[in-house]
Structures are given as C-alpha cells and as structure tokens.
Design a binder for these strands. Sequence first.
DNA 1: CACCCGTGGTT
DNA 2: TAACCAAGGGT
Length: 304
Amino acid sequence: MRPTAASSVPPHPQAVAELHDLVIDWFDDNARDLPWRRPDAGAWSVMVSEFMLQQTPVSRVLPVHQEWLARWPRPADLAEEPPGEAVRAWGRLGYPRRALRLHAAATAIAQRHGGEVPHEHDALLALPGVGEYTAAAVASFAYGRRHVVLDTNVRRVFARLVSGTAYPPNATTAAERRTAGGLLPADEATAARWAAATMELGALVCSARSPECGRCPVASRCAWRLAGSPAHDGPPRKGQSYAGTDRQVRGRLLAVLRASREPVAQSALDAVWHEPVQRARALDGLVEDGLVEPLAGGTYRLPL
DNA sequence: CACCCGTGGTT
DNA sequence: TAACCAAGGGT
C-alpha cells in the first residue's frame, strides 16, 4: 500500500460529519434553482440534463433542456421520433453524438424498462451514453440513492480540500475514488444531498480559475489553503485545440444538415470547407457515427 | 490510457 | 487574443 496524501490521513468521523453539515447547509442556502432540481422534475428530466451537461455549461443547457422536456416529456416520446430529430433539437450544444446516444437510451428505456428510467446503477450504466459519472448522478439526484458522484467539480473540490493540490489528476484515479468513498455519508438521503452539494460548491465557489475562498464554508479546513494555495505543479493540463480540426469541419457540416428539412446536396456541404480530403474525412466520420445519412444521388440528411 | 468528439463564453 | 474551461463517454 503506497501512502498518499489522501489515504495517509484517516478522516475522523466527527470532522467528516462537520464537513457534511457545513457543505450541505451551504447548499441549502446557495443552490441554484435549476429545472432538473425542482421537486416536480422526474428522473427523465434529470437524465436529459446530465447528458446535456456533459462538457457543456449550465447556461447553454437551460433553454434546450426546457424545449426537450416540453416536446418529449417521457423517454418513449423521444423514442418514437427518428434519431435525426434528436440531433436537430440538440442545436448547438456541441458533441452531437450525445443526442444520438440519448435517443438510443430513450429507446432502450422504452423497450427494456417499461418506459421508466432505471433506478439501479448497473442498469443505468448499460444505457448508451451513460458512463460511471452519469449513472451515479441519475441514481443519486433522481432517486436519492447513495453513490460516489465524481465529476470535474467534485474532483477539484476534493483535490483542494483533502489532497491540498490546486487541481485533480488528469484522469480519475483509484485514490480519488477512495477519498470520495471515505467521505460519502452513510445515510442514503444525506449521501445524495452531499453529492449535489459538493458539485455545486465546485461550480459556484471552488471554481477552476478563480476560487472564491472567502465564500467557502469549509475554507478553514481546506488542505490547499492551509498549504498556502500552491500553484499547480504536475504535468500540464490537457488543452483542447479546435481551429482547423476535423471537429470544426464536422460541426460546420452538421450545422448545414440541421438547418435543412430536405436532403442537402453535396455541393452545399462542399462549401463549408476548402480542403477536400479533410472535408471528405469529416463527412465520412459523421456517416460512420450515424449522425448523417447518405442518400442515393449524392445527397445527405439527418438520420431517420 | 491517450485520444477523439463541438461550441461559445471568459480571462 | 490565444488559452482555458464547461455536470464525460467511447474506443
């Protein structure tokens, strides 16, 4: 067993209970009023929000989430539509494969789960587009179950609060899961509250760029602060390039297709990018992913 | 495990 | 302004 900063300090139950109270009390006073958090929000609303929030800010998700829930109030409603409609309604949220996977998940829910979003982590995890985080988040937020919910916000909060580093590792580690598991309240309802509260703390106060420690309910116990808020020292955090990549070309191609109810001619797609090899590769990729359907005659459309 | 997958706001 | 960042998942 290799000693680590996180595991070498067994948390005292009393201190952990105080953390729970401080963060959850803060959450009671500061939680944003988000549609998928309201009492009348069902599991489907939570699940749609989780898909949309993958790598996408809340502010951009809000209007699209509202449209989706109004148009498709239940998973079966979405499943009845062609996948291309999900891609179209996804709009400019980005990563449109999420729309396809959410449609596929809705279809699986309609077919295999009687139209109800599953309660169990395992069943959720088996759905397309649902990974470890999303399965835990839906089970916890929608059904009040006890799970370690490790997203980028929670990982950053624990990195600072427990490990004393400015940022978590690039990839989620077993040590992080251990830390999070050790801090998870034993009581199911409290655990679910804790999951939402730590996530919100990371989003609103313990942010990546400029944490507002003056507003943090646990600043006095934060290992990072107590260490003098040292700068990030590890390997450089992965940057995302975009300009000139296939992703940019795919985005332009799909934007043209989303905008048209009719099949689009090859010439209209050719106009979005000057370089023919990359353009063809991007279009092939979209077809390969099922985001675009090629038709006889050299036209294209969103999938039916 | 490294890399790919969109988009737009903030610093 | 270029870089960074945003409730990840799949391969």
